[in-house]
């Protein structure tokens, strides 16, 4: 009896499962989008809001965290704002490069509670792009967002957190 056909099939399964491990990476992002797992919100510009729910008020607070060694100070002007679902809101962030070298900053957003992540829509955000900041430079960043009217009823407050990374070295490495 020849073993070749079965052997081939088994090897194909192995190779397929190895590829599947890597396919899990994009699949995971889809999974996060659908379930709001880990509060990983979309990094793409959202569509405009179409309606406003006047009856509801949501507390949205902002927090930032510069990862250890990232020489940035980023802070929102307001600690928190109260918004009506569907209504557009602008929040300004002050960002500063505290080092004496030119740096590139990447802000990674995260929303809590995780189930609210897909209901927070950003129209404009400094996190969409890598932000080059010259040594000591201070800039204002704009965040334009709204909370979806579909936000689950039990969510009364949510937090948008930015973790700020220094990606200057990765940029140098990839160029």
């Amino acid at each position: 009896m020849s073993h070749a056909p079965l052997l081939k099939r088994l090897v194909v399964i192995c190779v397929g499962m190895f590829a599947f491990a890597f396919a899990l990476v994009p699949l995971y992002d889809v999974f996060c989008d659908v379930t709001g797992l880990n509060g990983k919100p979309s990094l793409e510009q959202a569509k405009q809001s179409t309606s406003v729910n006047e009856a509801r008020e949501i507390d949205v607070s902002f927090t930032t965290h510069a990862q250890s060694g990232a020489p940035f100070e980023v802070q929102s002007h307001e600690y928190s704002v109260v918004v009506k679902p569907g209504a557009m809101r602008e929040v300004l962030f002050r960002a500063k490069n505290t080092s004496n070298e030119d740096k590139v900053m990447q802000a990674v957003p995260s929303v809590s509670p995780g189930k609210a992540a897909k209901y927070l829509h950003k129209i404009a955000c400094f996190c969409f792009d890598q932000q080059p900041l010259k040594a000591g430079e201070e800039v204002e960043f704009k965040l334009l967002f709204y909370v979806d009217t579909q936000l689950p009823e039990d969510v009364e407050e949510l937090t948008l957190s930015y973790t700020v990374f220094d990606i200057s070295r990765q940029i140098v490495a990839s160029n």
Binding site: N38, T63, H65, S68, V108, S110, P113, G114, S161, T163
Partner: peptide
């Protein structure tokens, strides 16, 4: 509680509150 981490994953645990949550770098947990 909002949890995050500066480097690796940590987990904040107080048995008397039955609260244990991972602090993941780059993300917040609640």
């Amino acid at each position: 509680f909002l949890m995050t981490s500066d480097d690796v994953i940590h987990s904040w645990w107080v048995p008397d509150f039955a609260v244990k949550k991972d602090a993941n770098p780059g993300f917040i947990n609640e």
